[in-house]
């Protein structure tokens, strides 16, 4: 009796280990959360300085078209971020729109049309594309795409269009591999049922497979957009870095990320120039939050439909 009593009432080695493991995981989790909160807090704090201590109005910041933080006009520095915002959105949307048909086509090839060769050849190719560092993409863009655009459209060759082509190659593997996941999660039974009803393979793909996979494909597209929006180095190398409104696709322009990468090393902490860059970073952060939110919304709506 006493033996049982004793063994039940003393904490065993296993339970101690269990508690220790729990504490370790919680500490790690807490650390990560702290880092995330700190990043948000810091960027928000620095980013809002432009509006609090440098007296720039938020509206002027978002709609102004002149970016020259070292020059003051009417008591406030010239920090109109619209050219960069427009540049970022234009490049992101153009690159994604260009990538969608290629990505879906490639993904269908891998899941439905030639699954064997598709997975044997295209899968490694895609993984390779993901693994190439962005500076290499930028370099290729600089030496191949920019001169090509220069020859075809004239001008310097730097601009939104060059950025679009470079980003297109960079987001293609992201969108494709996620689309593949979504297509292969469509039950095989759907395909069999559709074929057994006298549908052709194309009708099956178009009416059943793509339709069932739509939420997943939308998520893939938003992920691709998020990647395009956040890409800095490769874009900076080909976009021209002129903080002007992008009135033409082949004229030098800039994006939020390209201005940040070119500018952040050349400004002094605490100056207006530096604060303005932090404000751009804040916009980037808010945009990636928005993309994340969109992904969750799509996933939830997709889940409800099922």
């Amino acid at each position: 009796m006493d033996k049982i009593r004793e063994s039940i009432l003393t904490t065993s080695r296993a339970s101690k280990l269990e508690r220790r493991g729990k504490i370790i995981s919680l500490t790690c989790l807490g650390g990560i959360c702290l880092v995330v909160v700190a990043i948000f807090g810091f960027i928000a704090y620095r980013g809002l300085m432009t509006f609090t201590s440098d007296h720039v109005s938020i509206i002027k910041f978002l709609t102004g078209t002149e970016w020259n933080p070292s020059v003051s006009k009417n008591g406030a520095p010239l920090v109109g971020a619209l050219p960069m915002i427009a540049g970022s959105f234009l490049i992101t949307i153009l690159a994604t729109v260009l990538a969608i048909p290629f990505a879906i086509g490639t993904a269908l090839m891998m899941t439905d049309i030639t699954p064997k060769t598709g997975t044997r050849i295209l899968q490694p190719v895609l993984e390779l594309l993901v693994g190439i560092p962005s500076v290499v993409y930028g370099f290729i863009g600089l030496t191949v795409v920019v001169p090509a655009i220069r020859t075809v459209f004239g001008g310097s060759g730097f601009g939104i269009l060059s950025g679009t082509f470079v980003l297109f190659v960079m987001v293609l593997p992201t969108i494709t591999s996620m689309t593949v996941d979504s297509l292969s999660s469509v039950p095989k039974d759907y395909r069999s049922a559709s074929l057994a009803l006298g549908a052709t393979r194309w009708q099956t793909i178009y009416k059943v497979v793509l339709r069932s996979a739509t939420p997943g494909i939308l998520t893939a597209i938003v992920f691709g957009m998020a990647r395009a929006f956040g890409e800095a180095l490769a874009v900076q190398m080909v976009v021209g870095n002129a903080t002007l409104m992008p009135y033409s696709l082949v004229a030098p322009a800039s994006t939020l990320t390209s201005v940040l990468t070119t500018g952040i090393g050349n400004t002094v902490m605490g100056t207006v120039q530096n604060d303005a860059l932090w404000s751009l970073a804040l916009i980037l952060l808010l945009m990636s939050l928005a993309f994340n939110l969109a992904i969750h919304l799509i996933a939830r709506r997709g889940a409800m439909k099922r």
Partner: peptide, 8 residues
Amino acid sequence: FQQPNPFP
């Protein structure tokens, strides 16, 4: 088929 497989 064996598994009921209506389309979504």
